[in-house]
């Protein structure tokens, strides 16, 4: 079972393999994309192409993992989908061990937004998980302990402390005023 969300119907992608290339052209484009993904572990392209290729790559790795390299059908599939034949070795000997007992999907899709200027085309990045490249979304650094932040925190604390003290002083003043006014009232009523 694939671990990624898929569309219930496949995209036809009539222009993926060049105009008029039809379903065979679509599959050829998918083969190129899957081959590139296995080779480079991170590719960039049109969102709809890359998203469609993602399913094929996931399924190929899943089949390789499930059936192993002795299964005839799986080997035929690997031979068909990987245009460069050294990648068949990589699929079974590198990727399958990498994703043994893997709990999630093997690939990650990042949306890049639309191209500009010109006709807006949604672009995306597709990568194999556990690749050695720097992350697409940079990891946020923990900067709590940098000197500037420590000083700013302390300044904030001091400011707040001052504020509380001033409020407390105001309250005290109000209370004392009220007490004196009460005493005045009571003395007035008794006299």
């Amino acid at each position: 079972m694939l671990r990624i969300p898929i569309k219930v119907t496949a995209r036809k992608l009539p222009h993926a393999g060049g105009r008029g290339s039809g379903p065979q052209g679509r599959i050829n484009k998918m083969r190129k994309l899957v081959t590139a993904l296995i080779r480079h572990e991170r590719i960039e392209g049109q969102y709809q192409w890359v998203d469609e290729a993602r399913g094929y790559a996931e399924r190929l790795i899943l089949e390789a993992q499930r059936n192993g390299d002795t299964h005839k059908g799986t080997m035929e599939m690997a031979d068909y989908w990987l245009l460069e034949k050294d990648l068949v070795h990589k699929l079974f000997k590198v990727l399958v061990p990498r994703y043994t007992n893997y709990p999630a999907s093997f690939t990650q899709l990042w949306s890049l937004g639309e191209t500009f200027p010109g006709r807006p085309v949604p672009m995306a990045v597709l990568e194999l998980k556990g690749n050695p490249w720097p992350p697409v979304v940079p990891k946020e650094r923990d900067q709590r302990n940098s000197l500037v932040n420590i000083l700013l925190d302390q300044a904030r604390k001091d400011y707040r402390q001052q504020k509380y003290e001033s409020i407390a002083a105001l309250e005290l003043n109000k209370q004392s005023e009220q007490q004196t006014s009460n005493i005045d009232d009571s003395s007035a009523s008794t006299s």
Binding site: R39, N101, Y102, P103, G130, N131, P132, W133
Partner: peptide, 30 residues
């Protein structure tokens, strides 16, 4: 034509290095 790519062996060594910045997923037992 693969001059812009690294050898699989090298990539794997870097991938398994503890110094690399990428995240790792925990294995699941069935």
């Amino acid at each position: 034509r693969f001059s812009n790519t690294l050898a699989t062996k090298l990539v794997e060594r870097h991938r398994k290095s503890k110094l690399a910045s990428h995240t790792r997923e925990e294995a699941e037992t069935k």
